[in-house]
Each structure stands twice: as C-alpha cells, then as structure tokens.
C-alpha cells in the first residue's frame, strides 16, 4: 500500500505552506483563466503575462488542498520565464508524469516514461500517481494553464 510520505514530500508541504507567485496581474494585458474542480471545490484563477512568446509573469489566486496548491505553485515556478512553446512541452511532460502509473501497473518493472532528472522540483509530485483520486487535484492548475495558453491571441 502506498505511503503518506510518498504523497506529502517535504517540497510539497513547503509549497503548500508558502505558495509562490500568489496574487493578481492587471488583466488586460494579462490573460485571466479560471479553473474549477467541482468535485472537491478547489478553485484557481491564473494570470499570465505573455510577451514575444515568453511567459514573462504569472500569478495565481484560489484555494484547495495541499496537492492542488503545491502543484500550482510548482507549476508557476517551472513555467515562469519559459517560452510558450516550452511551457506547452512542460504541461505535456507533467501530464505524462500523472499517467505513468498506468504503464507501470501494466508492465511492471518497465522504466517510467518521464525522466525525473529533467523536471526538477516537479518530480516531487510523482507520488501523486499512486493516489488516483488525487491526480485531478494535481492537474487542476496545469489544465488551467493549458486553457490559458490556448486562448493566446
């Protein structure tokens, strides 16, 4: 059975207790997107400043469980300063990370699809896949970001 420590890594608790990039950006010019998890009531409002194809600034408000809040905070730290293209790739990688368990369950022993060394602190969220009902908590901010990027002019 999965262990609590796999889920609540120290990095996650740290980002939950002191979330990065909290706040709002003037919109416009910032893009404002809302994400909502109707099942548990988690909410996020994401503000993105994109200039010349680069996510120059990003802020967020909202509330939710430690996993959704830490995931949002880690996401902000990861994509701020990235090009939109790179941010898209990061989203894909993260989605992959959240679905890795399916492949490892099916073919036990096979290596995970995501190279954990390449994703920095985001790797702390890897334990979430062992708690399937929490995956949607971790995905909330990322789905919201994805929606925001799709809305870019």
């Amino acid at each position: 059975m999965s262990n609590l420590e796999d889920l609540y890594r120290e990095i996650i608790l740290d980002h939950y207790r002191s979330p990065r990039n909290r706040g709002e950006l003037a919109s416009p010019p910032a893009i404002r997107v809302e994400g909502f998890n109707p099942l548990c009531g988690d909410e996020i409002v994401l503000y993105l400043d994109v200039n010349d194809g680069v996510v120059t600034d990003l802020k967020m408000t909202g509330h939710g469980c430690s996993i959704s809040q830490a995931s949002a905070s880690l996401m902000g730290a990861a994509v701020k300063g990235q090009t939109v293209e790179k941010a898209r790739a990061t989203i894909l990688t993260f989605k992959q990370l959240m679905t890795d368990h399916e492949s490892t369950l099916e073919h036990d022993g096979e290596p995970a699809k995501v190279d954990l060394r390449s994703i920095g602190e985001l790797a702390a969220l890897q334990g979430v896949v062992k708690f399937p009902v929490r995956i949607k908590c971790a995905m909330l901010a990322w789905n919201t970001l994805s929606q925001g990027i799709d809305e870019l002019p």
């Binding site: 469980c65 996993i67 929490r134």
Partner: peptide
Amino acid sequence: HPHDVAQVLDQFGVCVRPGH
C-alpha cells in the same frame, strides 16, 4: 484542507468523506 485530512485518515484505515 479536508482532502488532506481524509488522506491522512485513510492511512489509519479510517473511512470519512471530504467534500461539499
């Protein structure tokens, strides 16, 4: 957060419901 409380409780074999 209630989700986190329930997750910790699960580790103790306790079944409770978090949510609205």
